[in-house]
Amino acid sequence: MALTQTETWYLSESIKGETLICQKLANYLNQVQDPELGKLVLELQRTCRQHVDTLIGHIS
């Protein structure tokens, strides 16, 4: 199914948003002091990357 203009916009913004979050999480991994938070950040980063891959996969 061809994408609508709206869908294209949301896909684009979501990809950019998730990518930015991934970048921040990567930086935070090196900064966190609390191992519990570190574990959580790692988990979030994994999900974030999955989201980016899924979003990109939908347009290709």
Partner: peptide, 23 residues
């Protein structure tokens, strides 16, 4: 900051995208 980012992408992108997606 992580929580803020999650709120933002969830509320401003995903939630309306669900409502407005045709596919």
């Amino acid at each position: 900051d992580i929580l803020t980012s999650q709120k933002y992408i969830s509320n401003y992108y995903y939630a309306p995208a669900v409502l407005e997606s045709t596919d």
